[in-house]
Design a protein around this nucleic acid. Structure first.
Lengths: 335, 335
DNA sequence: CTGTTAGCGCTTTCAA
DNA sequence: TTGAAAGCGCTAACAG
């Protein structure tokens, strides 16, 4: 049986309140402090967080509902979140939505019932409906990486459209005109495709339909298959923009297999600086999302809502994602 | 303010105990049941799990302490764990050890203080010391994927040595004699290297020192750099065994870059059926760990310890990992 | 600064 | 089957 605060009381002869106060950082006479510390050590006392939660109405636990935990991208986000939250005394309860809207709603419910203090969400649904439960329970939610159709929630993303636009503009500035895009069928994928189209339009370049591929999210098969198709085209693109990590992976495999060279025969630009771009040669030119910042900004806002009483309007943070030059884009303007 | 059981009492006029009993699946008069159900709906009542935990001394939360959450391998394990635990009403609090022993110990402490009902651990340390805290608190721990130097804990792994031995034997049976190994510096890596050596010894083949590479865990750089070195050797190996996913990734990149072909010029065999082997061509021949089974077995044992009072001796489960043939190994016995 | 007291919301005897 | 009452371990007024 674990020691309770009562045992400390019996050991020291002090009152419960005094002990509790000291344990929570209050001021106590030096003499009593020593007594308490000694008793704590002697009895190996650890406060019962459950009891504490019951009265403070705080569990010091954050629910992290993640679209697809098995993906490399969420793994990195989770890593940063775990570090950030732990350093502030918060636990992180994670729920995998496995890329399924029903599951996501179920996860929100689960978090609410477990009475987490707040929720970090990488959503699969764009529908704010699924958050109504959390809202009703007064549990703050911060969206990470993906927006939903509502501006009632805090949200930290990068400007996907703008980032993709810059990526495309970069290709264009290197003399590319025949540019293909392969993107996933979800929020970020669509935004990035929009940015791509916008840049092309500005440059007065028409994008032929056969240069645009899209499909299920997080599918490296999408990248692989699409690239194979692109390579069969009589009028092959000189460059390809991929909308996420998994797609890039598939594209690279297809290229390697075909024996064509990057960047000599085809140029590549992608998203996300994860493990692959770091090890592959030529180094992939890419848009690097500030993963750690996305999480720390989001968590900071969430904890602020939790810990500071006063209300403030929903925060919409849009972080800058830098283009990191590698060697995967050929400059067609020099020869 | 959320509704409490007291509100249900006022609404129905029944006693607290009756309501509580019904809510926990007890028998109540049909008439009363209707009353309660109605009140629950009307007041949108949800039991306060914290209060419940305080008296039952169960949080219905499992701590998952993971060596390195950002790795693809743990991501998949986590995915299965989340599904398994949720379906049984358990939450999963995850703590990333970030490949650091100090952090791991800190994480165990954290879980204990959060009073999780049990801990699932993919350990970085091989020292059982770090688990003493959990042991003292009477919190059961189940080790996943990696053993530690103690047989006092439940543990679910694959037989790494044997699996690597079969992988090496497979290469040998295909006529390979000059086989290199690249392995990580941690438990599974060492076990797999041992298995490799054992197979080679049985076949009467000496392994030259320059065919053995090892380095930090989860480093695709290890694979990349080692492979580069191997390719420089005057007497190049005909096959390479890699001890984990990240290493395989690096090796493949190095091969692609060098312009040599797999399996024509060099054969490859690896571990773990994750995203890469599924998309790459030639399909990688590999040892596929039963990821889902590792988790479900481990979680099953853990919940059994938690939910059934009686004690039982530590379970040591060693799962079979099948060799899946791809096209990355050349058969040298035919020509 | 200290201690008494009254809960937090729920489960669980135990007697009716 | 039901309900009154006694906690679970802790915090927070409040009075001293």
């Amino acid at each position: 049986m674990a020691a309770t605060i009562k045992d400390i009381k019996n050991e020291t002869g002090l009152g419960l309140a005094t002990i509790s106060k000291y344990l929570n950082g209050g001021n106590v006479r030096a003499e009593n402090r020593k007594k308490i510390e000694e008793a704590v050590r002697k009895l190996d006392y650890h406060p019962n967080e459950t009891a504490r939660s019951l009265v403070t109405r705080r569990t010091r636990t954050i629910g992290f509902v993640v679209n697809l935990i098995a993906s490399n991208f969420s793994g990195v986000l989770l890593q940063h979140a775990s570090a950030y939250l732990h350093s502030r005394g918060y636990g992180m309860m994670i729920c995998d939505s496995n890329h399924d809207e029903k599951q996501e709603e179920e996860n929100i419910r689960f978090c609410v019932e477990k009475q987490v203090d707040g929720i970090l969400l990488i959503s699969v649904s764009r529908n704010p409906e699924c958050l109504s439960l959390a809202e009703k329970a007064g549990i703050p939610v911060v969206l990470l990486d993906r927006e939903i159709k509502s501006d009632a929630f805090d949200c930290v993303t990068i400007d996907n459209k703008n980032a993709a636009e810059r990526a495309a503009a970069y290709l264009i500035s290197r003399g590319h005109r025949k540019i293909a895009v392969i993107h996933s069928e979800e929020y970020t994928g669509h935004e990035r495709c929009r940015g791509f189209r916008s840049a092309m339009k500005k440059a007065g370049i028409t994008v032929p339909a056969q240069y645009v591929y899209s499909g299920e999210y997080h599918s490296s098969e999408l990248g692989y298959d699409s690239m194979k198709e692109l390579l069969k085209l009589p009028d092959r693109p000189t460059a390809v923009l991929t909308s996420n990590y998994e797609v890039s992976l598939g594209v690279i495999m297809a290229i390697h297999e075909s024996g064509i060279r990057c960047p000599e025969d085809i140029s590549l630009i992608g998203f996300d600086e994860l493990i692959l771009p770091m090890v592959m040669r030529p180094k992939l030119t890419l848009i690097a999302q500030p993963m750690e910042e996305i999480v720390s900004e989001g968590a900071r806002i969430l904890l602020k809502r939790i810990e500071e009483g006063r209300d403030f309007p929903p925060q919409r943070v849009s972080l800058y994602a830098a283009l990191k030059e590698g060697e995967s884009v050929r400059d067609l303007t020099v020869r």
